[in-house]
Computed example of a mutant assay.
Amino acid sequence: MLTAILTIILFCIMIIPHELGHFVVAKLVGVQVNEFSMGMGPLLFQKQKGETLYSVRLLPIGGYCAMEGENEESGNPRAFNNKKVWQKIAVLLAGAVMNVITALLVMIIAVTVSGIPTNTLDSVVKNSPAEAAGLQAGDRVVAVNDVKTSGWIEVVQEIDRDKSGKEIRITVDRDGKKQNCTVQPEYSKKEKRMMVGIACR
């Protein structure tokens, strides 16, 4: 059920802006848009505004921008088929451009909401190798085995680099002073990587 809901949301996020891109650019270059619909299937609501019929349909799995002369020849000078080549290309490309913009906005929002993990420790798991080695919340991991780290991904990669279980040296910045801690990583079957019991902010 959750998968179906997420699929519908994905369709709405990608298809509606895609069609909106076609719609906006079509209007800008003077193409007559007969109907702009959000959703597919049975009609729920519609309103005529100027030459365009705006509609909302039952199934939120898409939408469409119906332009004059898009699928057939039309004598209307404002029909899609009678526009200049560059105008046609602009209308067609607008959908893809909107998809890219939408994807970027979604990623920016996701990162803003969830944040980007840093290399500063938020917590140290109790009775973990990290706690035994003396690591503390607030420590900033600046290097693992002398390899400089500036973010959480780099910290994880360096800890997981050697799966033999050998001790590793984690260098942290604590209150402006660098300290070295020797840690014995443990392999996590659940995470499928070497872990020491730390979480970053």
Rank of each mutant, 00 (worst) to 15 (best):
V111R: 10
E131I: 01
I109C: 15
A130L: 06
I116F: 13
L121P: 13
A137V: 03
M107Q: 07
V124Q: 05
P117G: 05
A133V: 01
L135W: 02
S114V: 04
A133P: 10
L135M: 06
N119E: 00
G134V: 06
S114H: 10
V106H: 09
S123M: 07
N119L: 03
S128R: 03
D122R: 08
M107L: 14
L121M: 13
E131L: 00
I116S: 13
V125A: 15
V106E: 01
S123W: 06
T112G: 14
V113N: 14
M107S: 14
S123K: 10
K126S: 08
I108F: 13
D122T: 00
V124F: 08
K126G: 09
E131G: 00
Q136F: 08
I108H: 08
V106Q: 01
N119H: 09
V113F: 15
V106S: 05
S114R: 12
D122G: 13
G134Y: 10
V124G: 05
L104G: 10
A132H: 07
A110V: 06
G134N: 12
I108K: 11
P117Q: 07
D122N: 11
Q136I: 12
M107E: 02
S128T: 04
V111E: 02
G138M: 06
V113C: 07
N127E: 15
Q136P: 12
V111M: 09
I116Y: 13
V125E: 15
K126P: 10
K126T: 04
P117K: 03
S123C: 03
I108E: 07
N127P: 08
T118A: 13
A130S: 05
E131N: 01
V124M: 11
S128M: 03
E131R: 00
I109M: 15
K126I: 02
S114M: 12
P117I: 03
P117L: 03
A137L: 04
A110S: 11
Q136V: 13
L105Y: 00
V106N: 08
S128D: 01
I109F: 15
